[in-house]
Design a protein around this nucleic acid. Structure first.
Lengths: 141, 141
DNA sequence: ACTATTAGTTAGTCAAACTAACTATATGAT
DNA sequence: ATCATATAGTTAGTTTGACTAACTAATAGT
């Protein structure tokens, strides 16, 4: 095995690998009941809990007007609820509903099912390498 | 270290890691002269060589009309050229120009610069793990 | 108390995706 | 050989999700 520890070379391969991986996963997204940006926002609400529109927009790296529309759509489908903050009446707290949690979980499972299937063909050692790499990617500053 | 060889668990972490990584990289994209879909199409032309619109659309997983517009824009900026196929006059062959190759290369470098910088903080062993993982991701069927 | 700031929404624009429908060319079946 | 069918690409029109600018409502800071 070639020991590739040149950061630029690793960056290139890792970038290409991440693109390839997500492209594969995205194929399953077409069946989803919800678009990718909405599913993503919903998953933030589920995992990080209720938060303001501003915080949700920041978490998803979009501007408030963009998130305002996404949340309005989620609310129209009863997947999230908006409540006026008692302490600050300008602000709203957005939370996933039980229906939202369920739908998000299903979407996530469907997306991951294809990837899981691919991973089953790998050895335990290869899976360990990927697991370790995933943690490194998540920890990148 | 926990030995995570459960494919579903690895899939979940790897998916999250890939999203995180690409999101970081995308920040640098705002400075790019070309949008992500155009840069991506251009890179396919550079790396895989000239091809028909249909093939390019398939490679990018979009429908022909979508690619038709992207290519028209690339052509308007002299980053790609379209020539009618001699054997089949319905078909066109799309190729990157020298200008296109240069621009694509610059865009890629800019995108990877940030990632490379992050990777520099990692140990040689960690880089090897990521390099190995990248190859596994690229090889996934 | 008045000004400035902040949270969110509304209006309007743009890029990129789609489908449907079109033109032009190629293929194939009788 | 001709006519029907299929294929390559484009054009037209729609939708979604992103943006900025400008607005309302509420809070915070002199």
């Amino acid at each position: 095995m070639v020991k590739t520890t040149n950061p630029a070379a690793v960056a290139e391969r890792l970038h290409a690998g991440a693109i390839r991986l997500l492209r594969r996963v995205r194929v399953a997204d077409s069946e989803a009941a919800l678009s990718a940006p909405k599913l993503s926002a919903l998953s933030v609400l589920v995992f990080a809990g209720p938060m303001s529109l501003k915080a949700l927009a920041a978490a998803e790296q979009v501007k408030p007007p963009t998130m305002s529309k996404l949340v309005a759509d989620l609310e129209a489908e009863a997947l999230a609820v908006k409540t006026v903050d008692r302490a600050d009446k300008r602000a709203v707290t957005i939370a996933a509903t039980a229906k939202g949690r369920t739908l998000m979980e299903e979407g996530r499972k469907r997306r991951l099912a294809l990837l899981t299937k691919s991973l089953r063909t790998l050895s335990a050692r290869e899976l360990q390498t990927l697991a370790a790499a995933a943690e490194l990617m998540l920890a990148l500053e």
